[in-house]
Design a protein around this nucleic acid. Structure first.
Lengths: 169, 169
DNA sequence: CAGTATCCCAAGCGATACTG
DNA sequence: CAGTATCGCTTGGGATACTG
């Protein structure tokens, strides 16, 4: 069986999810979306991805209902839909797992609950509010593991300060 | 830049995670591990994956410290390590997201907290215990969305009953 | 700016056969 | 049982050039 062409025999919905978000680059694109990136050119420059591939991925995500095209200033924004926003727990879990692999004390990005300022734990929970905040309620800031600034573009610079997730650039 | 060959420029640990678990088939293999599959042949038959690819994935996961080889009865078991078990939140979030995409009332697999019997929510929480149980404390049972039994092998049949995660076959 | 079009190479993967 | 070896196709994707 060719994975990607026939998921019918898989008795678990994981395969269905991977069909949409399991391709190379897709998760990285979505991470950028959560960080507030919306423009084709910004995705392309930040990820250093070929334009053909980026076009294909953005279209696939749009077709799948994860992203939505919105006109802004004569240009197109790619914005997370409700279904896309629901991917946050999965994305966050992967980020935390990747972060914990080296030195857990040196995380690269730290997420906090905007309403109360408490950092969320590895399961996405805010200990103070006893809730699992949605992505729209979170803020990001650089952690101790984030390296020195190598990029000087406006987006990279903004992401070196604390900032609400999803705020458009 | 070629994704998969150079993640150094990625300022987020998501890329690091995807380097290990982002390849095709890898997540499906890990799902089987959480369900208790440990043998080469069982993976191969359940996933209908080519032996060459399975070999490569199992070796990569072993090298990455996600799986561990354990001799059992003259054969080899592939068993999740502590780092592998920590992938559960990410895997669970993806499964839930994939399940919710069609009809949320018709989930295929339902996970419950073995200690108290309460189903866990989409964030992995047990409402009764106010905790996020580890994979070792969970049980799986078929949900209303699981189709009719098409496979009659022992593993598929066992997975149509309630069962603790990670129990070896 | 936001793509499309073309080219071409490399990797991924399935199928099959073989092995200790 | 648990792989290796070989083959050959198909896809992915980087590079470059072009377009409304």
């Amino acid at each position: 069986m060719a994975l990607g062409t026939d998921y019918e025999t898989q008795d678990c919905s994981l395969a269905r999810a991977l069909e949409i978000v399991g391709e190379r680059w897709t998760m990285l694109i979505l991470r950028e979306c959560f960080f507030g990136v919306r423009r084709f050119t910004d995705f392309q420059q930040r990820l250093d991805i070929s334009k053909a591939v980026l076009t294909q991925r953005l279209s696939a995500l749009t077709d799948a209902g994860v992203l939505e095209r919105q006109p802004r200033g004569g240009r197109t924004d790619y914005v997370l839909t409700a279904a896309g926003l629901e991917l946050w727990p999965a994305l966050h879990a992967l980020i935390r797992w990747g972060d914990g692999r080296s030195d857990p004390t040196r995380r690269r990005r730290i997420f906090s609950h905007g309403l109360c300022g408490t950092d969320i734990d590895e399961f996405g929970r805010c200990a103070h509010c006893e809730s699992v905040p949605a992505a729209t309620e979170l803020r990001v800031r650089p952690g101790p593991g984030l390296g020195p600034a190598t990029r000087t573009d406006p987006i990279s610079m903004a992401l070196r300060t604390e900032r609400a997730l999803l705020t458009p650039f």
